[in-house]
């Protein structure tokens, strides 16, 4: 029911053992050279030059390859050669499992097809963002996965509204937020009305009624929904080559005047239309 990577799918379904998976991952670690290692093996750079670039990375927020080009150690063509060689020689987890004897080649094809079918529900659909937003594909995927989780986890029917850039977010009954860090920095927020909060609570707690539940539990269910979405967003981001760390969720009780987008951030608001008096929004504050 969640975004998974292939090895996890195999272990969860007892198709390979955890020990076999660890063995296959260790083999991948041995065979799949990192960018610096590959550049050395191709004779483009020396170990000393890689260490110099790693030291420079401490004060510069750049990927190693870009930094090697900027420092004049690699040409752009050489960098592209290294990346191509990395891609062409990459040992995938399925191949590694066959090599360590955990799977036959036939079983691998069958399980890959099963995995593809299992994950088909999370294939992203295109969502349009306004203007030029950095890492737009990540935020489009984030919105798309949020919509999919509203359907699958909350079982709510809705119509997504057009995404807009905002400087202030309208107030609402409550909001649950999670800070995202790593290759991208942002705050992910779900804003809900009182009625939507109860719908979320019913779905998360799997109860027909939540009228007697304390407010603490009701708020916790919205935070848990945010946690589930953001964890799955991080999983999908890692498949896109983007490292995203998540932090424990928090609740926000916005003032009547609304919530201002912090300085140095771009605010995106995705209205989620569920019905009259049922206000729900996905808001993302993206650090510029």
């Amino acid at each position: 029911m969640a975004v998974k990577f292939f090895g996890q799918f195999l272990v969860e379904n007892s198709l390979v053992s955890r020990e076999a998976l660890i063995k296959a991952i260790d083999l991948q670690d041995q065979k799949n050279l990192k960018l610096g290692e590959m550049a050395i093996s191709m004779g483009y750079v020396t170990q000393t030059e890689i260490e110099r670039a790693h030291n420079a990375q401490m004060s510069k927020d750049m990927k190693l390859g870009d930094l090697l080009v900027e420092m004049g150690i690699l040409t752009l063509n050489q960098l592209n050669d290294v990346i191509t060689r990395q891609k062409n020689t990459h040992l995938y987890i399925g191949e590694a499992l066959v090599l360590v004897g955990a799977l036959s080649a036939e079983k691998l094809q069958q399980y890959l097809a099963d995995f593809k079918a299992d994950q088909a529900q999370y294939v992203s659909e295109r969502i349009e963002l306004p203007g030029s937003i950095a890492n737009n594909l990540v935020w489009e995927m984030t919105a798309d996965l949020t919509y999919k989780m509203i359907t699958r986890v909350l079982d709510l029917q809705f119509r997504p509204g057009k995404c807009q850039t905002v400087t202030t977010v309208d107030s609402n009954f409550m909001m649950a937020a999670m800070d995202l860090s790593g290759d991208v920095e942002a705050r992910y927020i779900i804003s809900v009305s009182e009625a939507i909060q109860k719908s979320v609570a019913k779905a998360i707690l799997r109860e027909d009624t939540v009228d007697d539940e304390p407010l603490e539990v009701l708020e916790d269910t919205v935070m848990e929904f945010v946690n589930v979405v953001c964890g799955n967003v991080a999983a999908k981001a890692s498949q896109m080559g983007v490292i995203m760390e998540i932090n424990p969720p928090v609740t926000i009780h916005p003032p009547a005047t609304g919530l201002s987008v912090p300085t140095g951030h771009t605010g995106l608001c995705f209205p989620i239309h569920i019905g009259e008096d049922n206000k729900m929004e996905l808001i993302i504050f993206i650090k510029s």
Partner: peptide, 22 residues
């Protein structure tokens, strides 16, 4: 919710977790 992040999943298994549920 982080089960699908390959590095987290692998780290948990290597540290001794018996399985990871997403």
């Amino acid at each position: 919710s982080l089960g699908g992040v390959g590095d987290k999943f692998t780290e948990a298994l290597k540290l001794g977790a018996k399985n990871v549920i997403s």
